[in-house]
Design a protein around this nucleic acid. Structure first.
Lengths: 359, 359
DNA sequence: CCAAACGAGTAAATCGATTTTTCGTGATTG
DNA sequence: CAATCACGAAAAATCGATTTACTCGTTTGG
């Protein structure tokens, strides 16, 4: 019930000091666990602390240090499971080390990304975990470099000459997907991606293409890359399939590999529109897993990114730097898991009707 | 390129003052936009600020005020679209008013919820937006009351005697769902919920039951409530359907209404297990919408919560209190939108096979 | 014409800790 | 027995702003 605290001012270190009959400096030492305090005095401080309900003000405490015990985290968005889990992990890890995490969403905008970073610099955060909108060469990373901020880049990055990076091993995962699809007999595959995130998308595409061609030199791989936004992808995809249907380009692919979550959504929605079912009419695998993918019918095959590992290693690397760790920046790649679910089958196994347009 | 700043200490207000040839107090006034400064001096300050790249240190600036320009936000989780969008909104709104948002996840634990709140109190946040794990009567709200913190409760709350509350109008939305299902001819409906979140679940259940019974007095409404965790719900649901299948209890329901997102996932997964398809074998509506629900086949009907409105009104209410607004706490209910998608049909329209167990 | 009012600015106090410096006391040592 | 050391604690400086109190001219008003 807290003896009716109400609105009363919180006790400061001086209140504790005068109550315990010692100086503020001594209280500070006791709170910090310094041993050069007479046990008797320490006890009086502890008593006063308990009685007054004193707690150190982290803001005042941080005033004097150049690096405050605050970690900034900038993610492109919070709406997807991936970044939601990432923030949850990062928050827990920061807290474990006595730091406060301040999270912000760049909302897929590089301009906002830099603004946020400026504000975090104003706060003199000890470090930043940045998941850049585009890649490691954006203005945000530049700002961090120019201002001597310490940070780690994650997710949509490969490696950097100034910062440690941690991301999923896109290439290996894509190679695994290629093995699966080729193994099931697919020889005409569409890959869907987002051009903006150059580095990561390339790694995913190359990993896929390289392995697919190595296993089956006759495989045909089409690529549909939307520049920056997702909405254009929808129409690009529609055009692509329309072409395959009626026209010149030959038959349509037997499988689609989407290099990012939204692409998987768009692909599914396009399948719906055309009345195609997975895996009979077409197979589908997506990079990035989500909870719903295992309850739909069919369940959607997906690449699961190791969120915990990425978050853990990012924080380890970050704190190593905060504590003065030297050495060249390290680029870490964490292995993914590929979950082959019902949305992937062998081509020609089902009706493969050619798709009576729904509607 | 920022003339090679490197690691150099950031300029303080005194650096600006001495460079501009005025006192720190004057610089402070200029930065705050006070008009009682000679234009000439103001200009010199601006020049110095520009040249040195000075920015106010928000931490130092907040030191003297009792309420710092920080808003705390505590959500049960970040992994779902709903809370992800909520955090994004709240962050934007806080930023608009020059505040920094510190977000934390209680991970569905009331213990953690209170710990986070204690830490936020240490930071002397100006206000807190709390989405409680359970309801408005938990220990967290109690802590806020006992310590005279200002805050707003959202989502899993109805009303409170100490804090403003903002949440979706669960009752009205559920009534709407009832109208739809009854209108389509359903007379045996299963409602799935989570007992832990008492208040909200009751509102949703009552809103549904009340309207359903008013429209069709012969309707049968079964309820499966998991106590606190989602996993038990899975087996409870399985038992429920097993019973309906073979045994005494009569036929199985023609529609399921899930009162929360995870319940919708569990229901879908149970349908999968039994080989039931929506809407032919059974209809499904869920509280809480998600992006994937419109790309699956069938698309899943859902109640869409007005995230932006909730966030907006929560912040409005919060800042009104921060600025000293008086008056009794206000309980706001925001109207939802019900999206009837393909997962809802009329009973007896399809095979309603009785379900050849998949396997 | 002298006093009250006002305009513009500065010095100093303040916020709540941490850290460095100084100080006093008792114990050790030459 | 005086000089040195060690120890524990207090005093003071510091972090970077804001705010209060006060000073010095210049107006304005009675």
């Amino acid at each position: 019930m807290a003896h009716r605290q109400g609105q009363r001012r919180r006790p400061s270190i001086h209140d504790v000091a005068s109550y315990a009959g010692v100086s503020a400096a001594t209280v500070s030492k006791v709170m910090a666990g310094v041993t050069t305090v007479k046990p008797e005095n320490a006890q009086r401080v502890f008593d006063a602390v308990g009685l007054l309900g004193y707690r150190v003000d982290p803001l005042a405490s941080d005033m004097r240090r150049a690096k405050r015990r605050i970690i900034g985290a900038i993610m492109p968005e919070f709406e997807s499971e991936f970044f939601g889990q990432m923030i949850t992990q990062l928050e827990g890890l920061a807290e474990q080390r006595g730091y406060t995490l301040v999270a912000a969403s760049s909302r897929e905008s590089e301009v906002r990304e830099k603004e946020i970073l400026e504000r975090m610099h104003d706060w003199r955060v000890a470090g930043v975990v940045l998941a850049p909108v585009r890649n490691e060469h954006g203005p945000a990373a530049g700002f961090m470099k120019a201002n001597g901020m310490t940070g780690v880049l994650i997710d949509r990055v490969l490696s950097d000459d100034a910062f440690d990076t941690v991301s999923a091993d896109s290439e290996a995962a894509s190679a695994e997907v290629a093995r699966e699809l080729i193994g099931k007999g697919h020889r005409h595959i569409l890959v869907v991606g987002l051009g903006e995130q150059a580095a990561t998308m390339h790694a995913r595409l190359d990993g896929f293409r390289g392995t697919a061609l190595a296993l089956a030199s006759d495989v045909r791989i089409d690529v549909v890359l939307a520049e920056s936004d997702v909405e254009p992808l929808r129409s690009q995809l529609r055009d692509y399939f329309d072409q395959g249907e009626g026209g010149s380009g030959g038959k349509r692919p037997t499988a689609v590999y989407s290099l990012f979550l939204k692409g998987t959504l768009v692909a599914l929605s396009e399948f719906r529109r055309r009345g195609w079912h997975c895996p009979n009419d077409i197979s589908l695998v997506g990079f990035d897993d989500a909870e719903w993918m295992q309850v739909t019918w069919p369940a959607i095959a997906a690449v699961v990114q190791p969120v915990r590992q990425i978050a853990g290693h990012a924080m380890d690397a970050l704190f190593a730097r905060i504590e003065g760790g030297e050495g060249p920046p390290r680029a870490r790649l964490e292995p993914c898991q590929v979950l082959m679910r019902e949305s992937v089958g062998s081509p020609g196994n089902g009706p493969h009707s050619g798709g009576g347009h729904r509607q």
